[in-house]
Design a protein around this nucleic acid. Sequence first.
DNA 1: CTGTATCCCCATGGATACTG
DNA 2: CAGTATCCATGGGGATACAG
Lengths: 269, 269
Amino acid sequence: MIRHDDGLSADDHLALDVLSLLSKKWHPVVVLTLRRHGTLGFNDLLEHIPDISGKVLSGTLEALGDAGLIERHVTSESPLRVEYELTAAGEDMNSVFESLSNWGNRHLESATPTVLIADSDRRITGMYGDWIATRYTVLRAHNGDELDRSLDDGVDVVLFDEGLPGTDTSAIIETVDKTARTILLVGDRPGTELLEWPCDDVLRKPVVRETVLEAIDEQLDRRDAPTDQRERAALAAKLSFLELIHTRERLTRIDDYRQARDRLTDLEE
Amino acid sequence: MIRHDDGLSADDHLALDVLSLLSKKWHPVVVLTLRRHGTLGFNDLLEHIPDISGKVLSGTLEALGDAGLIERHVTSESPLRVEYELTAAGEDMNSVFESLSNWGNRHLESATPTVLIADSDRRITGMYGDWIATRYTVLRAHNGDELDRSLDDGVDVVLFDEGLPGTDTSAIIETVDKTARTILLVGDRPGTELLEWPCDDVLRKPVVRETVLEAIDEQLDRRDAPTDQRERAALAAKLSFLELIHTRERLTRIDDYRQARDRLTDLEE
DNA sequence: CTGTATCCCCATGGATACTG
DNA sequence: CAGTATCCATGGGGATACAG
């Protein structure tokens, strides 16, 4: 190979060589996926990596194997079963990815917010997703598992339907709460038990595009608000929501409602 | 944008985003070149980066500008003069490149040796280059400047023509000597002054492919030999070279020759 | 001098069908 | 299940000419 003089150091060339290992569309994704989940089979990888085709995964695995980043183990023939795992060199790529994400955290502040839509109905998550995809990065979840996994992904706001299967609504929202803002989607008229749910806002279905965007923007604006202000805003949102769908007379007859009103008055001072 | 659940963390996605900044053929090269040379104009870059076309350099610079890695300064209109320099974010890519080259040093030991051919005649460097390009990474230099620059590049063996312009043969070889093995190419019959030149081997032009490959391989084999063995081998090579082209009678009449012979005998004990 | 505009090539990777 | 084989679409990037 004839290399022309480009005035770069040997280390620079080495860096470029390593970079070329990671510069294929799916190479780094496969490495990161194996790092996160440990040993995986061919189909496991196909499932974990959306949108990759079998042919390309095959090629990627071969290339990564040649590069010494992963190892291939045949666990059984007929039915053929193969497992892939990172080698020591592959694990050591951690330091590179760390350095990359550090750079990103320092200089790529301009990330678009991420919104997670959790609803058992794929048509719903699809529709809402399309509505807001132009402004945000959208993730979709259709059961408790998907939701759990997606929450690792740096979500800013969660649109959460109360009827998500495999979940205890209240418990889930409480977990979500720590890392993201939550907007609860309710189907039919909720009672004052709503006040107990630790969400930041409530929307009643059916809902229109404009309403969703407004609600999300509002939560994004308040992302960095202190805890007490957050509680106040959440309480106010729930109360005015209740007052919208129930008569005030009926509400004042309920203890929980009156206590919440008092609490809000306290907070507002 | 709708992102499908791939089970990767937010930091992983960030790393992938940063990686995509560097995953174009010339992006990292431009960044590294600017880091090494500081502020450069468009044509400076074209010269420093062999094989890049104007169109592609233009596109690369625009993309890197958009990504916030470099800044564009117009220093004069008509004739238009533009300078490019790294931003703080661009400088900070250092840490990424460092991490990449560190990984390379740890896991990419299998580098092919690099041979630098220094001769004022491009036909010579071209021909020799073609001869050995299948086995080694080849660099070419045609004057003192090019040679100086290429020496940073982790060269293992230098094929050096004594008549290189802009160079003091002896001084240059002495510099080279510290990082690489040197094989001197001489045109006409050299005298015993050859003994003073700090090279590891001597070839007399014209030379054939086989001879060059042998000489290079020999030096590569001895890369890690201790200093005293190196001196012995070099002295032996020069002496047998002299003995090949001069009669032994004539040589023994020269003080330098006899002293060198004695020195070799000493070393061989 | 510093770029666009144009045209063209080919490697990457997507879709689908088939095999051990 | 874990891949090949085949075909095809796209776009990154090379060469050249030209423009501000």
